[in-house]
Design a binder for these strands. Sequence first.
DNA 1: TTGTACGCGTTATCAC
DNA 2: GTGATAACGCGTACAA
Lengths: 339, 339
Amino acid sequence: MTSHHAVPTLDDVARTAGVSPATVSRSLNTPALVSRETLQRVKAAVADLGYTPNFGARFMAAKRTMTIGAIIPTMENAIFAKGIQAFQERLHSLGYTLLISSSSYDPEIEAEQVRALASRGADGILLIGYWREEKVYEFLKQRNIPFLLAWAFAANNALPAIGFDNRAAMYQLCDKVLAMGHRNIAVISGTTEGNDRAMNRLKGITERLKVEGFNLDTVPIIETPYDIDNGANAFEELMRGPERPSVVMCGNDVLGVGALQRAQEMGLKVPSEVSITGFDGIELARVVTPKLTTVRVPHSEMGHRAADELVRMVESGEVGRSQELASEIVVEKSIISLA
Amino acid sequence: MTSHHAVPTLDDVARTAGVSPATVSRSLNTPALVSRETLQRVKAAVADLGYTPNFGARFMAAKRTMTIGAIIPTMENAIFAKGIQAFQERLHSLGYTLLISSSSYDPEIEAEQVRALASRGADGILLIGYWREEKVYEFLKQRNIPFLLAWAFAANNALPAIGFDNRAAMYQLCDKVLAMGHRNIAVISGTTEGNDRAMNRLKGITERLKVEGFNLDTVPIIETPYDIDNGANAFEELMRGPERPSVVMCGNDVLGVGALQRAQEMGLKVPSEVSITGFDGIELARVVTPKLTTVRVPHSEMGHRAADELVRMVESGEVGRSQELASEIVVEKSIISLA
DNA sequence: TTGTACGCGTTATCAC
DNA sequence: GTGATAACGCGTACAA
């Protein structure tokens, strides 16, 4: 006995309010153009019937949905959580609804989801980082859908982005590590394929080491997906290598925390026997013992600014303006000075 | 010079493929009814034009979107991350797109987002826990939108839910704590207002203590939103109280980790001077030192099952079947036995 | 197996 | 300030 309470439409509202559909539409979208009295009647009818606009129809007629889409690589670790939460909150206060999906770091899925969001009428889309197949960008441009990149910033790239310079930040951290006297450096990087953030962080290290005169072939580097256990396993592998590093630099805090954990399991003292660094400055890095030396990224700030800018692009039709945010080296007890 | 490459429509595809729009539609939705040869031509045209179906139009014509919505209280901490990731992955393999939004634990925002998802044609909706205004449930039922609750399970509630019994799980953990000889117990609970999970976890403790003959008025209980710093502050407040607890039971791992952190900052040894417990079994609980004693919840399992069940509801039109999942007490070094 | 024609719910243009 | 009416792009009877 499925009672099919029909979904109330704008026409139903018009009927019960005793006005035309057009007036209902105006009451909802441009209330200023409607008399106070009719507005009241319409509102009452809307509440009475529990009417909700059909966005499919609205999208077809008006080409706007007040919806912003975001595609993030993963929800599984907290890397993007804080920034996206801030993004969402700001969008909400601007009257937009955020719809999120996650791609599991799979470019195919990401491309699919871009089309899914476009099909559903997203007024604008937030993407993470620069690297993706050119066809995705072409699609977005052809569809005239404003998009903004976040979590990365490259001065030489024209695409609108709000983020930080992953390479430069890691370069500075490496600088610090060298200044503290470390010369035996190993690296656990996130998977660089298809991930410009991971690639640039790795580059930050290798470029700095090259400047220092290192032979990069002798620097142990392990690449592995961002995951605590992967960080742990990579760390163990590095420590079993021919020459023990004095410091293990990790591509992010998740890997760093994994390394730290395995160090403790192996009975290695951090930092006296081995130092460990991370990247991102998420909570995880603060709650472990010792706290992880890392690069703190202004996640909330980035989320807020991205929301403001993307909405500006959507509403003005103007091209996006990139913004570079500063990151900050945070030295904690997970590293020791050998100098 | 905004070049308005028009968005290709089904009619365009039909034209370039030299067939009727109906045939294109069939090629996309029921390819079995189309000859191999025309199918080829249509596919070529689709690829050629970069055609993407307009979901607004599809929704209007067919009342289905292959979209599932989920509303979670927050993305900011990792409580829901693993489960939602699993939910998303399973949905993807079932051919559905997941759209997520977060309510910041605000019932008004949640209600708004339910309507937003409904307006956008979500075929089904996942919600967290039982408690929300009745009007939300009425809306969902009136609209005939299948919905499923997760992260909670109550045998006496008819609403379809896939989750675990928060009260019973915490009751058991409290059991364990008592068995280990603790009699001086303090509690840091999440905000219980509007949150049945938090309320039931707290209940699990108080009910068990009552059975043990405790006078509940003498049990220190602090309620605070889930946040590491809140956990830390509440812990400090409890330890400055008249009678120092031998154990602080926390409403989730986030609070527990905060408590642990503050304990270390205060120079209190865990567990020799004070024991701490959490709830959820997220990564956070595993990476701190000592590891947090907690209740491990089968997040991924829950996500997978929720996806399967919700899709079943959507596709069959049948009523949802609830499933209770088992949780597991995990005793780690953050608690000491006084017995 | 394929094509024709209608309707889905909304906004926008044009009258009034 | 308000009311007709024509799109918008698609799925699906129905007809061929």
